[in-house]
Design a protein around this nucleic acid. Structure first.
Lengths: 150, 150
DNA sequence: GCTAATTCCGACCACTTCACTAGGAATTCC
DNA sequence: GGAATTCCTAGTGAAGTGGTCGGAATTAGC
Protein backbone atom coordinates (compact mmCIF):
# COMPACT_ATOMS: atom_id res chain seq x y z
CA UNK A 1 0.00 0.00 0.00
CA UNK A 2 2.73 2.43 -0.85
CA UNK A 3 2.92 5.07 -3.49
CA UNK A 4 6.17 4.85 -5.41
CA UNK A 5 8.84 7.49 -5.16
CA UNK A 6 7.52 8.90 -8.42
CA UNK A 7 4.48 10.30 -6.67
CA UNK A 8 6.43 11.45 -3.65
CA UNK A 9 9.16 13.14 -5.65
CA UNK A 10 6.57 14.65 -7.95
CA UNK A 11 4.71 16.24 -5.07
CA UNK A 12 7.90 17.61 -3.60
CA UNK A 13 8.93 19.08 -6.93
CA UNK A 14 5.51 20.61 -7.48
CA UNK A 15 5.67 22.09 -4.01
CA UNK A 16 8.86 23.89 -4.95
CA UNK A 17 7.28 25.21 -8.13
CA UNK A 18 4.26 26.36 -6.14
CA UNK A 19 6.48 28.22 -3.68
CA UNK A 20 8.12 30.05 -6.58
CA UNK A 21 4.94 30.59 -8.58
CA UNK A 22 4.79 33.99 -10.21
CA UNK A 23 8.54 34.48 -10.05
CA UNK A 24 9.42 32.98 -13.40
CA UNK A 25 10.57 29.48 -14.28
CA UNK A 26 12.64 27.40 -11.90
CA UNK A 27 15.40 25.26 -13.39
CA UNK A 28 15.37 21.60 -12.42
CA UNK A 29 18.81 21.95 -10.97
CA UNK A 30 17.44 24.17 -8.24
CA UNK A 31 14.47 21.91 -7.51
CA UNK A 32 16.70 18.86 -7.36
CA UNK A 33 19.09 20.59 -5.01
CA UNK A 34 16.45 21.93 -2.63
CA UNK A 35 14.67 18.62 -2.37
CA UNK A 36 17.78 16.44 -2.59
CA UNK A 37 16.59 14.48 -5.63
CA UNK A 38 18.34 13.14 -8.71
CA UNK A 39 18.11 15.77 -11.41
CA UNK A 40 18.11 13.20 -14.21
CA UNK A 41 15.30 11.23 -12.67
CA UNK A 42 13.29 14.34 -11.93
CA UNK A 43 13.59 15.29 -15.56
CA UNK A 44 11.61 12.22 -16.55
CA UNK A 45 8.92 12.96 -14.02
CA UNK A 46 8.59 16.52 -15.22
CA UNK A 47 8.15 15.22 -18.76
CA UNK A 48 5.16 13.25 -17.59
CA UNK A 49 3.74 16.20 -15.67
CA UNK A 50 4.19 18.42 -18.70
CA UNK A 51 2.29 15.99 -20.93
CA UNK A 52 -0.45 15.94 -18.31
CA UNK A 53 -0.70 19.72 -18.61
CA UNK A 54 0.31 20.47 -15.04
CA UNK A 55 3.59 22.25 -15.74
CA UNK A 56 5.14 24.25 -18.56
CA UNK A 57 8.73 23.79 -19.60
CA UNK A 58 10.69 26.79 -20.80
CA UNK A 59 13.81 25.92 -22.74
CA UNK A 60 17.11 27.61 -23.07
CA UNK A 61 19.22 29.64 -20.72
CA UNK A 62 17.15 31.22 -17.93
CA UNK A 63 14.57 28.54 -18.63
CA UNK A 64 13.05 26.03 -16.27
CA UNK A 65 9.63 24.82 -15.21
CA UNK A 66 6.62 26.61 -13.87
CA UNK A 67 3.12 25.55 -12.90
CA UNK A 68 0.67 25.62 -15.79
CA UNK A 69 -2.09 26.57 -13.35
CA UNK A 70 -2.23 28.50 -10.10
CA UNK A 71 -1.35 26.36 -7.05
CA UNK A 72 -4.96 26.45 -5.83
CA UNK A 73 -6.11 24.76 -9.01
CA UNK A 74 -3.74 21.78 -8.82
CA UNK A 75 -4.56 19.07 -6.35
CA UNK A 76 -2.21 16.47 -4.97
CA UNK A 77 -4.50 13.93 -6.59
CA UNK A 78 -3.84 15.45 -10.02
CA UNK A 79 -0.11 14.98 -9.56
CA UNK A 80 -0.42 11.42 -8.26
CA UNK A 81 -2.77 10.44 -11.07
CA UNK A 82 -0.39 11.85 -13.68
CA UNK A 83 2.60 9.98 -12.28
CA UNK A 84 1.09 6.78 -10.92
CA UNK A 85 -2.13 6.28 -12.78
CA UNK A 86 -5.67 6.17 -11.46
CA UNK A 87 -6.22 6.20 -7.74
CA UNK A 88 -7.77 2.81 -7.03
CA UNK A 89 -6.65 0.10 -4.63
CA UNK A 90 -7.67 -2.60 -7.12
CA UNK A 91 -8.17 -2.22 -10.85
CA UNK A 92 -11.83 -3.21 -10.84
CA UNK A 93 -12.88 -0.08 -8.97
CA UNK A 94 -10.92 2.22 -11.26
CA UNK A 95 -13.16 5.23 -11.95
CA UNK A 96 -11.28 6.18 -15.10
CA UNK A 97 -11.82 2.79 -16.72
CA UNK A 98 -15.36 1.64 -17.24
CA UNK A 99 -14.00 -1.89 -17.30
CA UNK A 100 -15.13 -3.40 -14.00
CA UNK A 101 -14.85 -7.10 -13.47
CA UNK A 102 -17.33 -9.55 -14.87
CA UNK A 103 -18.65 -10.61 -11.53
CA UNK A 104 -18.94 -7.19 -9.96
CA UNK A 105 -22.59 -7.80 -9.18
CA UNK A 106 -21.80 -10.58 -6.73
CA UNK A 107 -18.37 -9.64 -5.43
CA UNK A 108 -18.27 -9.47 -1.64
CA UNK A 109 -15.23 -7.22 -1.55
CA UNK A 110 -16.25 -4.61 -4.06
CA UNK A 111 -17.91 -2.36 -1.52
CA UNK A 112 -14.80 -2.38 0.60
CA UNK A 113 -12.52 -1.32 -2.24
CA UNK A 114 -14.93 1.38 -3.28
CA UNK A 115 -14.97 2.83 0.22
CA UNK A 116 -11.18 2.71 0.37
CA UNK A 117 -10.83 4.36 -3.04
CA UNK A 118 -13.26 7.11 -2.12
CA UNK A 119 -11.53 7.92 1.13
CA UNK A 120 -8.18 8.11 -0.62
CA UNK A 121 -9.54 10.31 -3.38
CA UNK A 122 -11.20 12.56 -0.83
CA UNK A 123 -7.90 13.27 0.93
CA UNK A 124 -5.83 13.65 -2.23
CA UNK A 125 -8.27 15.78 -4.20
CA UNK A 126 -9.12 18.08 -1.33
CA UNK A 127 -5.49 19.09 -0.83
CA UNK A 128 -4.07 21.59 -3.32
CA UNK A 129 -0.49 22.66 -3.80
CA UNK A 130 -1.48 25.96 -2.21
CA UNK A 131 -2.63 24.04 0.86
CA UNK A 132 0.76 22.33 1.05
CA UNK A 133 2.47 25.71 0.97
CA UNK A 134 0.27 27.02 3.78
CA UNK A 135 0.88 23.87 5.77
CA UNK A 136 4.64 24.08 5.47
CA UNK A 137 6.37 24.77 8.78
CA UNK A 138 7.89 28.24 8.97
CA UNK A 139 11.40 26.93 9.42
CA UNK A 140 11.09 24.85 6.29
CA UNK A 141 12.91 27.27 4.03
CA UNK A 142 13.76 30.51 5.79
CA UNK A 143 15.41 31.96 2.72
CA UNK A 144 12.06 31.86 0.95
CA UNK A 145 10.05 33.77 3.51
CA UNK A 146 8.30 36.76 2.07
CA UNK A 147 9.33 36.02 -1.45
CA UNK A 148 7.23 33.08 -2.54
CA UNK A 149 3.72 33.15 -3.88
CA UNK A 150 2.32 31.26 -0.87
CA UNK B 1 -1.61 3.29 -5.44
CA UNK B 2 -2.62 -0.32 -5.79
CA UNK B 3 -2.54 -3.15 -3.37
CA UNK B 4 -0.96 -6.22 -4.90
CA UNK B 5 -2.91 -9.35 -5.64
CA UNK B 6 -1.53 -10.78 -2.42
CA UNK B 7 -3.81 -8.58 -0.40
CA UNK B 8 -6.76 -9.06 -2.72
CA UNK B 9 -6.39 -12.83 -2.88
CA UNK B 10 -5.83 -12.98 0.85
CA UNK B 11 -9.06 -11.12 1.57
CA UNK B 12 -11.01 -13.34 -0.79
CA UNK B 13 -9.59 -16.47 0.83
CA UNK B 14 -10.30 -15.17 4.31
CA UNK B 15 -13.83 -14.38 3.23
CA UNK B 16 -14.32 -18.01 2.25
CA UNK B 17 -12.97 -19.18 5.58
CA UNK B 18 -15.27 -16.75 7.36
CA UNK B 19 -18.26 -18.04 5.47
CA UNK B 20 -17.42 -21.57 6.60
CA UNK B 21 -16.41 -20.65 10.12
CA UNK B 22 -17.57 -23.19 12.69
CA UNK B 23 -17.95 -25.95 10.14
CA UNK B 24 -14.48 -27.42 10.41
CA UNK B 25 -11.39 -26.76 8.30
CA UNK B 26 -11.64 -25.89 4.63
CA UNK B 27 -9.01 -27.39 2.31
CA UNK B 28 -7.20 -24.94 0.08
CA UNK B 29 -8.41 -26.80 -2.96
CA UNK B 30 -11.96 -25.70 -2.20
CA UNK B 31 -10.98 -22.09 -1.52
CA UNK B 32 -8.93 -21.92 -4.70
CA UNK B 33 -11.79 -23.35 -6.73
CA UNK B 34 -14.49 -21.07 -5.33
CA UNK B 35 -12.40 -17.96 -5.80
CA UNK B 36 -10.66 -19.06 -8.99
CA UNK B 37 -7.16 -18.66 -7.60
CA UNK B 38 -3.98 -20.66 -8.03
CA UNK B 39 -3.85 -23.21 -5.25
CA UNK B 40 -0.06 -23.21 -5.18
CA UNK B 41 0.14 -19.48 -4.83
CA UNK B 42 -2.59 -19.39 -2.23
CA UNK B 43 -0.56 -21.86 -0.22
CA UNK B 44 2.19 -19.30 0.18
CA UNK B 45 -0.22 -16.63 1.29
CA UNK B 46 -1.81 -18.93 3.86
CA UNK B 47 1.62 -19.65 5.26
CA UNK B 48 2.08 -15.96 5.88
CA UNK B 49 -1.37 -15.62 7.42
CA UNK B 50 -0.71 -18.59 9.66
CA UNK B 51 2.53 -17.10 10.93
CA UNK B 52 0.60 -13.90 11.61
CA UNK B 53 -1.78 -15.88 13.80
CA UNK B 54 -4.86 -15.22 11.69
CA UNK B 55 -5.51 -18.79 10.53
CA UNK B 56 -4.82 -22.31 11.77
CA UNK B 57 -3.65 -25.07 9.46
CA UNK B 58 -4.82 -28.62 10.09
CA UNK B 59 -2.74 -31.22 8.35
CA UNK B 60 -3.60 -34.55 6.90
CA UNK B 61 -6.67 -35.95 5.22
CA UNK B 62 -9.82 -34.00 6.11
CA UNK B 63 -7.52 -31.15 7.05
CA UNK B 64 -7.51 -27.61 5.79
CA UNK B 65 -7.51 -24.09 7.17
CA UNK B 66 -9.79 -22.30 9.57
CA UNK B 67 -9.85 -18.84 11.09
CA UNK B 68 -7.85 -18.59 14.30
CA UNK B 69 -10.34 -16.00 15.60
CA UNK B 70 -14.03 -15.35 15.04
CA UNK B 71 -14.72 -13.30 11.87
CA UNK B 72 -15.76 -10.28 13.93
CA UNK B 73 -12.30 -10.14 15.49
CA UNK B 74 -10.35 -10.08 12.23
CA UNK B 75 -10.28 -6.86 10.26
CA UNK B 76 -9.43 -6.43 6.63
CA UNK B 77 -6.56 -4.28 7.84
CA UNK B 78 -5.11 -7.22 9.77
CA UNK B 79 -5.04 -9.33 6.63
CA UNK B 80 -3.54 -6.58 4.49
CA UNK B 81 -0.88 -5.80 7.07
CA UNK B 82 0.09 -9.47 7.31
CA UNK B 83 0.45 -9.86 3.55
CA UNK B 84 1.65 -6.45 2.41
CA UNK B 85 3.27 -4.85 5.40
CA UNK B 86 2.28 -1.72 7.27
CA UNK B 87 -0.43 0.49 5.87
CA UNK B 88 1.35 3.70 4.99
CA UNK B 89 1.52 5.57 1.69
CA UNK B 90 5.15 6.49 2.31
CA UNK B 91 7.58 4.80 4.65
CA UNK B 92 8.21 7.84 6.82
CA UNK B 93 4.66 7.81 8.21
CA UNK B 94 4.76 4.11 9.03
CA UNK B 95 3.15 3.74 12.45
CA UNK B 96 4.82 0.37 13.13
CA UNK B 97 8.31 1.76 12.64
CA UNK B 98 9.37 4.58 14.88
CA UNK B 99 11.90 5.49 12.21
CA UNK B 100 10.52 8.67 10.67
CA UNK B 101 12.72 10.72 8.41
CA UNK B 102 15.38 13.05 9.68
CA UNK B 103 13.68 16.18 8.48
CA UNK B 104 10.17 15.33 9.61
CA UNK B 105 9.94 18.54 11.56
CA UNK B 106 10.13 20.68 8.44
CA UNK B 107 8.59 18.45 5.78
CA UNK B 108 5.72 20.15 3.95
CA UNK B 109 4.17 16.88 2.82
CA UNK B 110 4.16 14.95 6.06
CA UNK B 111 0.74 16.15 7.12
CA UNK B 112 -0.72 15.06 3.82
CA UNK B 113 0.65 11.53 4.08
CA UNK B 114 -0.50 11.25 7.65
CA UNK B 115 -4.03 12.20 6.69
CA UNK B 116 -3.99 9.74 3.81
CA UNK B 117 -2.65 6.97 6.02
CA UNK B 118 -5.26 7.60 8.68
CA UNK B 119 -8.14 7.57 6.25
CA UNK B 120 -6.93 4.30 4.75
CA UNK B 121 -6.48 2.71 8.15
CA UNK B 122 -9.91 3.90 9.22
CA UNK B 123 -11.62 2.12 6.33
CA UNK B 124 -9.54 -1.06 6.54
CA UNK B 125 -9.63 -1.50 10.30
CA UNK B 126 -13.32 -0.73 10.65
CA UNK B 127 -14.30 -3.53 8.27
CA UNK B 128 -14.19 -7.06 9.68
CA UNK B 129 -14.52 -10.34 7.86
CA UNK B 130 -17.96 -10.65 9.41
CA UNK B 131 -18.89 -7.33 7.80
CA UNK B 132 -17.79 -8.65 4.43
CA UNK B 133 -20.00 -11.68 4.89
CA UNK B 134 -22.99 -9.50 5.73
CA UNK B 135 -22.24 -7.26 2.80
CA UNK B 136 -22.12 -10.13 0.33
CA UNK B 137 -24.96 -10.06 -2.20
CA UNK B 138 -27.46 -12.87 -1.69
CA UNK B 139 -26.81 -14.39 -5.08
CA UNK B 140 -23.12 -14.60 -4.36
CA UNK B 141 -23.14 -18.24 -3.36
CA UNK B 142 -26.66 -19.62 -3.21
CA UNK B 143 -25.46 -23.09 -2.23
CA UNK B 144 -24.16 -21.63 1.00
CA UNK B 145 -27.35 -19.99 2.18
CA UNK B 146 -28.38 -21.13 5.60
CA UNK B 147 -25.27 -23.16 6.14
CA UNK B 148 -22.52 -20.67 6.73
CA UNK B 149 -21.65 -18.92 9.94
CA UNK B 150 -22.54 -15.50 8.58
C1' DG C 1 -0.11 -50.55 8.21
C1' DC C 2 -1.41 -48.67 3.68
C1' DT C 3 -3.23 -45.07 1.05
C1' DA C 4 -5.08 -40.78 -0.04
C1' DA C 5 -5.51 -36.14 1.34
C1' DT C 6 -3.62 -32.32 2.98
C1' DT C 7 -0.41 -28.81 5.02
C1' DC C 8 4.29 -27.28 5.11
C1' DC C 9 8.66 -25.78 3.06
C1' DG C 10 12.05 -24.11 -0.07
C1' DA C 11 13.72 -23.51 -4.59
C1' DC C 12 13.15 -21.64 -8.98
C1' DC C 13 11.46 -18.59 -12.87
C1' DA C 14 9.70 -15.23 -16.26
C1' DC C 15 8.12 -10.79 -16.21
C1' DT C 16 7.50 -6.12 -14.90
C1' DT C 17 8.45 -2.04 -12.36
C1' DC C 18 11.59 1.01 -9.85
C1' DA C 19 14.89 4.27 -9.55
C1' DC C 20 18.19 5.73 -11.70
C1' DT C 21 22.36 7.00 -15.12
C1' DA C 22 23.96 8.57 -19.52
C1' DG C 23 24.26 10.86 -23.77
C1' DG C 24 22.93 13.78 -27.10
C1' DA C 25 19.74 16.95 -29.77
C1' DA C 26 17.09 21.20 -29.69
C1' DT C 27 16.22 25.64 -27.97
C1' DT C 28 16.96 30.16 -25.99
C1' DC C 29 19.27 34.02 -23.43
C1' DC C 30 23.28 36.90 -23.19
C1' DG D 1 29.12 31.87 -30.20
C1' DG D 2 28.66 29.91 -25.81
C1' DA D 3 26.36 28.69 -21.78
C1' DA D 4 22.22 27.06 -19.81
C1' DT D 5 18.45 24.57 -20.04
C1' DT D 6 14.62 21.43 -21.64
C1' DC D 7 13.59 17.41 -24.28
C1' DC D 8 14.05 12.58 -25.77
C1' DT D 9 15.65 7.82 -25.84
C1' DA D 10 18.11 4.00 -24.36
C1' DG D 11 20.15 1.17 -20.98
C1' DT D 12 20.63 -1.04 -16.31
C1' DG D 13 20.89 -3.40 -11.75
C1' DA D 14 17.92 -4.53 -8.12
C1' DA D 15 13.70 -5.63 -6.38
C1' DG D 16 8.93 -7.13 -6.47
C1' DT D 17 5.03 -9.83 -8.72
C1' DG D 18 2.77 -13.80 -9.47
C1' DG D 19 3.28 -17.65 -9.97
C1' DT D 20 5.16 -23.23 -10.64
C1' DC D 21 7.24 -27.36 -8.94
C1' DG D 22 8.80 -31.14 -6.09
C1' DG D 23 8.98 -33.26 -2.03
C1' DA D 24 8.70 -33.96 3.09
C1' DA D 25 5.62 -34.36 7.11
C1' DT D 26 1.26 -35.29 9.04
C1' DT D 27 -3.30 -37.30 9.59
C1' DA D 28 -8.02 -39.82 8.71
C1' DG D 29 -10.08 -43.74 7.22
C1' DC D 30 -9.95 -48.42 5.57
Amino acid sequence: MRISTKGGYGIRAMYELAMAHGQGPVPLKVVAEKQALSENYLEQLMGTLRKAGLVRGIRGARGGYELALPPEKISVGDVIRALEGPIAPVSCVDLDAEAGCERHAHCPTRGLWERLRDSMIEVLDSTSLADLCKEAPQDAAPEDSGKGHC
